[in-house]
Nucleic acid binder design. Sequence first.
DNA 1: TTGTAAGCGTTATCAA
DNA 2: TTGATAACGCTTACAA
Lengths: 358, 358
Amino acid sequence: MGRRPSRDRSTIGDVAAQAGVSRATVSRVMNGLATVDPRIAARVRATAVELDYRPNQVARSLALGRTQTIGYVVPDLTNPSFHGGLRGLSRAAAGQGYRVLVADSAEQAEDEPLLALETRRRCDAVVLVAPRMADEELARLLPDLQPAVLLNRRIEGAGLPQLDVDWASGIRDLVRHLTGLGHRRIAYLQGPVASRSNSARERALDAAADVEVVKIACGAMFHDGHAAAGQVLDAGVTAVVAFNDVTALGLLGALHELGTDVPGELSVVGFDDIPFAAYTWPPLTTAWVPQEQMGRLAWERLSALLTPTDTVDVLVPTPPVSSGPEAATLGDRPTSEQVLMRPRLVVRGSTGRAPNRS
Amino acid sequence: MGRRPSRDRSTIGDVAAQAGVSRATVSRVMNGLATVDPRIAARVRATAVELDYRPNQVARSLALGRTQTIGYVVPDLTNPSFHGGLRGLSRAAAGQGYRVLVADSAEQAEDEPLLALETRRRCDAVVLVAPRMADEELARLLPDLQPAVLLNRRIEGAGLPQLDVDWASGIRDLVRHLTGLGHRRIAYLQGPVASRSNSARERALDAAADVEVVKIACGAMFHDGHAAAGQVLDAGVTAVVAFNDVTALGLLGALHELGTDVPGELSVVGFDDIPFAAYTWPPLTTAWVPQEQMGRLAWERLSALLTPTDTVDVLVPTPPVSSGPEAATLGDRPTSEQVLMRPRLVVRGSTGRAPNRS
DNA sequence: TTGTAAGCGTTATCAA
DNA sequence: TTGATAACGCTTACAA
């Protein structure tokens, strides 16, 4: 009587025996296959309820050859800039009965490859966010991860979809905004040294005209931005481009403590447009990145890879880069395309005209 | 009959054949069992590398009867207050080879039970964070979820570990801090109506002496706090207790926009002590909640439940129940104990003496 | 020390 | 429409 302890749940065999049918029939009923006599189906369903039967997902996965789970591997789930992608991915995947298994390497870049591999072995596919992994390591890893999508980064010759942000475009917009306000000497708070998107930002800054850029070593966390305030003030600049919103807000906090007027004395911009950026004081000028849309897109690519429409997935070389309005599709081979998402400048209160310096 | 996964991974059988041994031996080698001839072991390992063999985790899980995965079910991963628990849980679980599968119900409270069940079926256990689920529904759900741990909430008569926060104690500390500063009429920004921890906070406020409390309907997100600013100013109070840090910061943003001086005209406190809270202007006075420690604790309880009872005493001694300033234990049965974590008042710049009102 | 074989709980093929 | 039965890939008594 009563429910069986969870240690030994009833199996499809129990239901079959109790209902006086075969396991195959129970399976058909549970999966809604129409080829079952309605009266038998009803009886099976009743017994299933009676025995509190739930199909074992692991056994199911083994038999089906798929887990209905996809992995999202991320360096730090705490970072708000990764939330959008996860959200978009989860929502889209849920629509087709897929779950997302989040794996967080807790910023231990060195065990990211292993983490990704392990995650992959439990899932049907993987979305990899690995901003700091070395190119060679990434290239070595990716073949073993497929089907997979690379998010927020791209790499040449890795036959898989890559959804990247046009970091340079975002930086250019921000810098243009600042130069338009008369800023001629600005500081850049560098992200983690190994970060590819930081390199992309720096290259864009190096190419910027009409403005002198002072680079300051920083990081990706609140306290990094906070700690950089002194150097920023010493740099004799009128504006700061922070690696991302988080460091921008850390900096903003420190500037308040030091009594610096933002944007009166110093303008500050971030990158990402995390939700909080709109609620700080002053609200943060930044570059919005369509992460949620990218998460959705990641699912679409994955979904295509998981659906055995055509079996000829030979590794194809990555096509050349081009550009476009919001999203530009590069190349024509669906299994290895690069998509570049362009950020959008969001002007808020943390930027203003450059002060007159005497 | 199951079919081979899309990628033709080599199986244990392939390795066995190629190495000229049985699958059992390969299994033993892969699991580091010492009872294998070193030379054979070496040969097997070489073949495994050669064939690029990786054990199929799903098959392994089925055979072992465990997935080495535990689920973390949260209403909204975007909310920073859930990050600490996840972090503590992941770190602790990783130490014993367990992964955490995060499932986010995206605030759709109505499908939380189903989500939790589905997650549980893919995992060996579950940590449930469900602040808004009705008691009856929760009571109905929990038996089917075991082994499980309830986080940030407790419920009577549910034979499982419950790690809760002493919300009332946190509120009392905050209120005492405010009354100590001369505040006699304060506003409370209510959390989601269904939230149990909101009810706990309200009860503590109702019981507070020396202070009049004006309750204002709000929510749990930035924009909720932001939108409540008007009502707060109309309420004729000198201080505000927000449901959590997120709403407190939303409110702070709005107050800045409206030119209200914090804490000169109005003091503001939050709850949780999310990382942001230290970097706003003014930095937020709040009640720190030891979420990371709670995550670790959740793992310890789960770990005990997952380890066969008879070996627990020998192999994994259950950590002594902590009591005292930080944690107080209610109840005595190890599988159903309630642990209450006490928040700690963190005084920062957002609170000050009540203004003189004439 | 190694191998044989029986599971683990499903699904899918194929014959009845 | 239904039921045997053979997978799925791995682990683990039990034998040898």
